[in-house]
Design a protein around this nucleic acid. Structure first.
Lengths: 138, 138
DNA sequence: TGATACATGCAAATAAGTTGCAGTTATGAT
DNA sequence: ATCATAACTGCAACTTATTTGCATGTATCA
């Protein structure tokens, strides 16, 4: 686990527990955003079994610290990804097989001011996902 | 109900039932995307009560015909909006009070080709929502 | 007006995520 | 080292969103 994550946890008064370390390891090893149930399954497979409730509680806490981001692909469940230490980016998901890949781009950086003028909101975040068909499913 | 919606239903072999007409009326009258439960509540208030299951079934069907779009704001439930006959647009939601307003813009129109080259996917849709604080909650 | 494919309501099931509580553990101070 | 304590975990039960099965009802077209 990167020291910066360790530091964020400590700064938040959080402990480095066995379950938490294993959950973070699963998240860090995944190449795409994963669900709570998937994390739970990988923990069991890695003989680091933690309760699914513990997974949910850690996901909420890590989001609160800004280490994790939650992404919704309209699948009826959320997916989670480590955002700390990574460049801001988005994703595309295949409508056939569900495969998700990173898109290292964001076309929204210059838009905030325009939206703030237009709406009087202060804008502090956005969610952007693309959908389509991968080469195998097309 | 616009004739074009009537026509789409007919073309899909769907019937113009009392419940369906009432559900579509609620959707057309809403100024922002609403949830299944909200639709159900408004139906009851309008003395056009239809079962919540019927609401869900109609929402799924209308999405299938492309008349409705589903939007997720990470609230644990979906919201629905008539898209047929309206300009493509996005939304911003207040993190304080949950208020949603339309953003009549889309910064993504020229991006599809670039993503397709980059990923080999064929892109056929996207979801984009903004978050922030409205003037009252700021 | 009658056949029938499509729709509905009700009850029950499923699935994601949350909460309460009693027992466990990491951590920092002694 | 060990101790006190706040944080953490597991389990069971719960809540909430959404789906499914099935028997009955109804819009539509011939």
């Amino acid at each position: 686990m990167p020291n910066s994550i360790r530091d964020s946890l400590k700064a938040g008064g959080k402990k480095l527990t066995r379950a938490r370390i294993a959950i973070l390891a699963v998240l860090e090893q995944s190449h795409f955003p994963i669900t709570a149930a998937e994390i739970h399954a990988r923990l069991i497979k890695a003989r680091a079994g933690a309760d699914l409730v513990t997974v949910y509680r850690n996901l909420a806490m890590l989001q609160g610290l800004g280490l994790l981001s939650a992404i919704g692909f309209h699948e009826g469940q959320m997916r989670y990804e480590v955002c700390h230490g990574r460049a801001h980016h988005h994703h595309i998901q295949c409508r056939g097989c569900g495969k998700i890949i990173d898109l290292m781009l964001c076309p929204l950086q210059n838009l905030t001011k325009r939206i703030e003028e237009q709406t009087q909101f202060s804008v502090d975040g956005h969610a952007l996902e693309f959908f389509g068909w991968c080469p195998q499913c097309r």
